[in-house]
Design a protein around this nucleic acid. Sequence first.
DNA 1: ACAAAAGTGTTCAGCGTACACCCATGC
DNA 2: GCATGGGTGTACGCTGAACACTTTTGT
Lengths: 230, 230
Amino acid sequence: MPHWLKGVIKNVSTDCVIFGFENSSLEILLYKRAQNPSKGKWALPGGFLKQGELIEEAARRILKDTTGVSDIYLEAVGVFDDLDRFPSWRVFTIGYYALVSPHNYKLIISGTYTIETKWFRLDELPELAWDHKHILDIALQKLRYRVLHQPVGFELLNKKFTLPQLQNLYEVILARQLDKRNFRKKIIGMNLLKKLNEKDSNNKRRAAYLYKFDEETYRKLLERGFTFEL
Amino acid sequence: MPHWLKGVIKNVSTDCVIFGFENSSLEILLYKRAQNPSKGKWALPGGFLKQGELIEEAARRILKDTTGVSDIYLEAVGVFDDLDRFPSWRVFTIGYYALVSPHNYKLIISGTYTIETKWFRLDELPELAWDHKHILDIALQKLRYRVLHQPVGFELLNKKFTLPQLQNLYEVILARQLDKRNFRKKIIGMNLLKKLNEKDSNNKRRAAYLYKFDEETYRKLLERGFTFEL
DNA sequence: ACAAAAGTGTTCAGCGTACACCCATGC
DNA sequence: GCATGGGTGTACGCTGAACACTTTTGT
């Protein structure tokens, strides 16, 4: 038994699709494997569970090791159990997706298991190891559904963001145009955003107001049976 | 190693919440365990995966062994991975729920592992083994959400059913009253039901028309981007 | 001063909701 | 003939969708 299998549960792993939003496009964080199996191929960050570790704990540990990030939005995608998904023996993997505001974090570029770590645009994905493309597809499908029914889009932006940024995010994820006025009316009407007295100075033209998501109000609304719908 | 652990994957199991609808109430099929661990306790039908078996295959196998039923609606609930959920060693279980029209099937009452098999009303559940109550709660939550967003309620009724039966089903699952005229208008307006030229003769008073779910039309509507909403 | 992006209101159609009476049947 | 449950239509308010011009600011 190779040393890296010590203390791990050999047939249960977790793999994580890390979504980021940058330059008006949805990106995914992949790493290039330094070790066999699938040495040299791009893959989703993932790994085996340790003894006594919960699956979500493992996912967070692996995310931290890969991206240097903790305290992020994580959502389960499901179990992947194809008989031959892992070449050497049978491994069940639990897929997650994470939402990250990319440039909040310094990437861990390389290490023992990693030749390279890189963000890829959805339309420029490389070939992925094992069934990772499949996991990614399901994760994306779940994300698209999720953003319409839960206020999770904000996780992909900075704490402070403008309405044009938010709308752009939705347009990219949903792959369709939204009407500016209707979008603003709806999202503001939910009272989930706090308008700040600051403007976004990075903008080339007219500066837009910054907003932030109001967790407190959201909790209160949830208790009253509110459901987010876009 | 006891003989029943031969050929199985010892740390992965599946457990199934079987929902049935009878006498205007939602019921759940449980069995009383004939063997340790948890001998004498009520539990969800479940068991370990076999080598080379997909999780859903295992769930269907177990359902058939428990209820005598094949070819039914199955839906994944999620992975349950608490460290101490199974007393002897760590077992990951994948929960499912099944929807069944109860009296279509003869129950397998007892066997090597089963003292008794019985339908329980939701409000008369016995204490359950391990974390099975938790699995049941999550399954119920998912079912309540599901019936509002997918046409799955029919799975709990006979192939031919009346609109009052369907409405009653929804009222029980959602635990609230629905307006008769609005319910009919909405459900008929979707064109998912075929009205038959038969009436329900079992009724004590005025006989109601029988309908059946039109799979064909549903498929076509789905392709056009239709989404079921109640 | 002009180009580019931010910001703002109104109208209309369709849908969800509330609501009351007649009909068929078994007893 | 009466009690029980089946079956039917309309009016109103809200919400989603379509749509165009003014304001700000950097160059």
